[in-house]
Amino acid sequence: MTLMTRRTLLAGLAALPLSRPAHAALTQYELVSQGTSVDFTFDLSGLAQSGTMPIHSADIQIDLSDLINSQVSVTLNAAEARTKLPFARTAMLSAGVLDVQQFPTIHFASTEVRLGEGGRISRGAEITGDLTLRGVTHPITLQADLHRPPGSTADNLDMLSIRLTGSLNRHDFGASGYSDLVQDTVGLDIQAEIKKAE
């Protein structure tokens, strides 16, 4: 997968203004694979490492009139996770960490959207949801940014860019193997381009 460029995020127009009609509707969006990546970071023996994990499926529904009603459900293919160090990948997929033989996927389902400054999802917004990893489910909160592509008009919402960032403690999910080598915290950086479903 190709990383969405930093320029695309920074140049994105201000996020969508909100109104609250009595009967809001959810709009179905789908991922654009070329602009989507799920990256993670971890410390191995004191050295920063990184990896990627492909998305297996995603259900993205956005309420364009009232963003707090939006819903996201994403399944990651843990068995296809990659790191830059081959031996680190083997350990990561093993029974002591991700245990992909028994749990080949990781699932996130949003439960709450909290808007940022000015009722926007581009400044300090958060998405909380249930993360299921190794069959264990815990809530996790991610920082969220949603933008229109650079140059698009205010009423053109056919394409949107999303970035979600945060971290988790792997021990919360029982992924405690190699604790003498790998630190507890795993960083997450999810970047996606989405388009209205046809």
Rank of each mutant, 00 (worst) to 15 (best):
R89F: 01
S161Y: 14
A78D: 00
T105P: 01
R134P: 08
T165S: 13
D59K: 13
G116A: 04
M92D: 00
L64S: 00
I106R: 01
V100T: 15
L131M: 14
D99K: 09
M159H: 15
Q71S: 04
R170I: 07
H107N: 11
A79D: 03
I55M: 11
L168R: 04
N77K: 13
R163E: 03
S167M: 03
L64A: 02
T153L: 12
T105V: 11
V74I: 15
A144Q: 13
S94T: 05
D130I: 03
D59W: 06
T105D: 03
R82M: 09
T75E: 14
R123E: 04
I68S: 13
L98V: 01
R163G: 00
L168I: 15
L64W: 03
P104H: 05
D66Y: 11
E126Y: 07
G151M: 13
T132H: 01
A81N: 00
S152D: 12
T105E: 10
D130Y: 03
R120Y: 10
S161L: 12
R89E: 15
H147E: 05
T137R: 13
E126N: 06
A58D: 06
A81M: 02
Q61A: 15
I162W: 06
R120F: 11
T111E: 06
T141M: 03
T105H: 03
K84Q: 13
G96M: 08
T90K: 14
I127V: 15
A95S: 15
T128D: 04
I127E: 00
T132V: 02
T137V: 07
S110F: 09
M53N: 08
P139Q: 08
A91M: 13
A78L: 05
A95D: 14
N77M: 07
L98C: 01
L67E: 11
E80I: 00
A144D: 07
I121E: 04
Q102L: 12
I127Y: 01
P54T: 04
T52E: 09
A88H: 09
Q71P: 00
R89G: 00
L76T: 09
G151S: 11
T52M: 02
G129T: 01
G135A: 10
S70N: 06
N169T: 07
I140F: 06
V72G: 06
T111H: 05
S152Y: 14
L115R: 00
L76E: 02
F103Q: 10
V113T: 07
N69W: 08
T90H: 10
L168N: 03
A109M: 07
P150Q: 12
L164C: 13
I68H: 09
A125M: 06
S122Q: 08
G118F: 10
N156E: 13
M53H: 08
S167Q: 11
D59M: 07
G118D: 12
T111N: 07
F108C: 04
I162P: 05
R120Q: 14
G124I: 12
S110N: 01
S152L: 06
V100P: 04
